[in-house]
């Protein structure tokens, strides 16, 4: 019985890990064994040898260099953008991006080492990511390459896993150490422009976390576990849904709530 309850407490976490690893594995198998389910990587891919998929932020950066990209990349980016915009939140960040596993690990280690209790060594604003979006596009235009893709630890990680890592692990290690020693949820929650991009894109999607004040006992476990605490500003104040696009839809708040006060819901239906 005890085991069973525990499993239920981690159902989204486990599903997320399965999704993240499965997607990476399908890409890996596409390269290594010639499977045709997913080929390419998270920057651009082809599903079932038919459907093009592309990272819309990468396409935006390449386009801002003044390049007119081929049809597949454009079409693929629209498919991905519409998909994430309809679902809502930063579902990419919580369920697809492999860096999520790295930063979650850093976060876990912070907790084990008790670093959260100490004063933060450094504090940066959540809005930095939107500046980095602007900077990415400006630098892409000036330098003639997709600027964020050039330094992206996300790219380094998924490219590395699929095609060979090399020194790319250093990019990932920087993120891990930054999140561990400098700022809690530092990369995914403050800096990453791709996260910022999906926060803007997922603002109006349907699948959001809903909060019910009547059931809430103010234990605040949800805000403790949340990597984007600011989105749960309504907890203890009023019922309602998380409307900020910055929520990564990871569902940790839903899992930790013992009072059934936090749940996923379709905000467009009653």
């Amino acid at each position: 019985m005890h085991k069973f309850i525990n499993m239920k407490k981690y159902k989204y976490l486990i599903s997320r890990r399965i999704t993240q690893i499965a997607i990476l594995f399908l890409f890996f198998a596409g390269n290594a064994f010639g499977w045709k389910i997913l080929r390419g990587n998270l920057s651009s891919a082809k599903a079932f040898d038919a459907v093009p998929l592309s990272d819309p932020f990468a396409v935006l950066q390449l386009t801002s260099t003044g390049t007119v990209l081929a049809q597949d990349a454009i079409l693929g980016s629209i498919i991905i953008l519409v998909f994430y915009a309809v679902i809502g939140g930063r579902i990419f960040c919580g369920w697809v991006c492999p860096v999520n596993m790295v930063t979650d690990a850093a976060n876990k280690l912070r907790k084990i080492l008790g670093m959260d209790k100490q004063q933060r060594a450094m504090e940066i604003a959540r809005g930095v990511r939107y500046w980095v979006i602007g900077l990415s596009l400006a630098l892409s235009a000036v330098l003639g390459v997709a600027a964020f893709e050039w330094i992206s630890p996300i790219g380094a990680l998924h490219r590395g896993i699929i095609y060979g890592m090399g020194f790319g692990w250093a990019f990932v290690a920087v993120v891990f150490l930054f999140d561990l020693f400098a700022v809690k949820n530092g990369f995914c929650g403050h800096v990453c422009p791709l996260g910022g991009f999906y926060a803007l894109a997922g603002r109006f999607g349907f699948l959001r976390v809903g909060y019910n004040k009547d059931k809430c006992t103010l234990c605040m476990k949800c805000t403790d576990i949340c990597p984007e605490k600011q989105v749960l500003h309504m907890v203890g104040k009023q019922s309602g849904a998380v409307l900020s696009g910055e929520c990564i839809n990871c569902g940790r708040c839903v899992e930790v709530c013992n009072d059934d006060a936090v749940n996923f819901r379709n905000i467009y239906s009653n």
């Binding site: 592309s54 003044g66 095609y163």
Partner: peptide, 14 residues
Amino acid sequence: QFIASCIKCGMCVE
């Protein structure tokens, strides 16, 4: 032009 349009997906490599 190449570095301004390559999206680094690796499908040619595959």
